[in-house]
């Protein structure tokens, strides 16, 4: 693939990921493909673009020349067979998109006081108002050092390794 074709491929890729909407420019319009390419190389090695093209395989042609439905089908197929690289590209594209000053402007236009580099000037927030913000619930307790008492730990049978399947996937 030539350099020109690679550039077009990256632009088509980010426009398929981030096709834009009312008040939201497309990914390629704000140049997401440039930081995406740099980050691919930075994190995945100097041949990362070549490997991206290779990973897309026949789907690259659909991205370059197809209509939106064909491009979506191509990315869907790639996502299914290469979640690792696809996931990196998707996340890197998202991050680059929302780090763009034009997109920050779009966020502002949607009613959020969001800054591109918030550390410089910060956000103006009302100071803690002792009269208004101090909790009045009166809840809470603690045990004094001398009041700590033995609990019947033997009733818990902690030697039984029975909690193996836990968590959100249990």
């Amino acid at each position: 693939m030539t350099a020109t074709e690679t550039a077009k491929l990256l632009a088509a890729l980010v426009d398929t990921l981030l096709p834009g909407d009312t008040g939201w420019p497309t990914g390629a319009t704000v140049g997401v493909q440039a930081p995406l390419a740099a980050r691919l190389v930075q994190e995945r090695g100097e041949d990362a673009l070549d490997r991206l093209v290779a990973a897309l395989g026949d789907d690259a042609a659909a991205l370059l020349n197809g209509d939106e439905a064909a491009r979506v089908a191509a990315l869907t197929a790639w996502e299914a067979r290469d979640q690792d690289l696809f996931g990196f590209v998707r996340d890197a594209a998202y991050m680059a998109y929302y780090e763009n000053p034009v997109i920050v402007q779009a966020i502002n236009e949607h009613g959020h006081p969001y800054r591109l580099v918030p550390h410089v000037a910060g956000y103006k927030l009302a100071r803690f108002d002792l009269a208004r913000d101090t909790p009045r619930h009166g809840r809470g307790a603690w045990i004094r050092t001398e009041a700590v008492q033995r609990v019947a730990v033997e009733t818990l049978h902690l030697d039984d390794e029975r909690t193996q399947n836990w968590g959100r996937k249990q």
Binding site: T16, L17, L18, L75, R90, D91, Y94, M95, A96, Y97, Y98, E99, I103, V104, I107, Y114
Partner: peptide, 16 residues
């Protein structure tokens, strides 16, 4: 904002 889209605490990602 990028982390909202690309995943934060629970790694929930925006659809593409």
């Amino acid at each position: 904002a990028g982390e909202i889209a690309a995943g934060w605490l629970a790694d929930v990602k925006a659809p593409w």
